[in-house]
Amino acid sequence: MRTGVMILPEKRWPEAMHQWRTVDELGFDSAWTYDHVSWRGLQDGAWFSAFPVLTAAACVTSRITLGTLVASPNFRHPVTTAKDAIAVDDISGGRFVLGIGAGSVGAGDSNVTTRQTFSRGERTVRFEEFVTLTDRLLREPVTTHHGTHFSAYDARMIPGCVQRPRLPMAIAGTGPRGLALAARHGQAWVTVGPADWARGFTPEECLEAVTAQVAAVRDACHRIGRDDADLDRIFVVTDQAGDFLTSPASFLRLAEAYAKAGVTHLVVHWPREEGVYAAGQEILHRIAQEALPRVREL
């Protein structure tokens, strides 16, 4: 099992730089950030744009995979998203993964470019078109596409991705259509647990939901004749998974449970001083020293 760290883009760069370097130096496999204009209960605090932050992170790290978890059609367009992704892929030396999701109404930024609130079904349709067009843009030097929601006219993506045939995409989705997108277009699939996680779940219910989701994404792969073993299965851990940042032992127990469920990549949040994802600032160092070697064997 691989392990990554989610770093919220809320710190000015002199402090944020330390976070990204630390994840790299401690031996974690990946580091990610949310892609929002603002986010939930932190919407009135500092919040920086994901792609510039990841570009800066690429310049101060040398080993870890970097990525968005996740970009969405709520305020992005495939042409500019693909162009930014290609740049980060180049600057990082081929260490970038583009995570994409359908977007959430409750995230706090779903109406920053339009007053229209899309239904779940409408978001899914926009998501499908966004992913399909982005896939083309990342593969082809010039793309023209006349879509219902997104279009591209002689969109040039030169010189293209460092990673071939294109940089990896991590597709977030738990419904049938989202899982089908992950199976068809993704090099990774992403979940945060139960689809309606905001209403609250016990750790046992969260594990049960992820176990069922992993089985469903495997079925989606098999329906199109794809070997699910080549699809990275990423679980972004929230507080509903349990109090796992209290000790290396609790983290290891979490990793063992989710590895058994079929997760291949566990992403935890950088401990914040207070509020959401608050924990002791030293815990990542202890996890790296005492738990990571055993987690890699799972």
Rank of each mutant, 00 (worst) to 15 (best):
L292H: 11
L292R: 10
E25Y: 01
G94M: 07
A209I: 03
W13V: 03
A152D: 13
V125Q: 15
C221A: 07
A209C: 08
E10S: 07
L42E: 13
E129Y: 07
A180L: 10
V105G: 04
S104C: 00
C221Y: 10
A82V: 02
K260V: 04
L137C: 06
E122G: 00
A261M: 06
W39P: 00
Y258F: 13
T174A: 11
E205F: 01
A180F: 07
I158D: 14
A257D: 11
S72G: 11
A249T: 14
R21T: 09
F201E: 08
H146I: 11
L179V: 06
A182S: 15
R177F: 02
N74F: 01
T68Y: 09
R21K: 15
T211R: 14
P73L: 05
D154F: 01
V263G: 07
F130C: 02
T80N: 13
I158Y: 09
E208P: 00
H77R: 14
F235E: 12
Q213I: 07
H77E: 14
D232F: 00
P194F: 03
E10M: 13
L292N: 04
G200I: 01
G41R: 09
D135F: 08
D89Y: 07
T80F: 10
R120F: 13
T132P: 01
L181Q: 13
P248N: 07
Q116V: 12
F127G: 02
V210G: 06
A183P: 06
G175S: 14
F28T: 05
E256L: 00
W32H: 09
S72P: 03
W13E: 02
A195N: 10
Y34D: 09
P203S: 03
R199S: 13
G147Y: 03
Q281A: 14
P293C: 02
V79C: 08
F251R: 03
T202P: 10
P168Q: 10
T132F: 06
R177T: 09
G45W: 07
V70D: 11
A216I: 08
W197I: 14
R136P: 05
L245N: 01
V70K: 00
A58E: 11
F118D: 13
L252H: 12
T134M: 10
T238M: 12
D44Y: 11
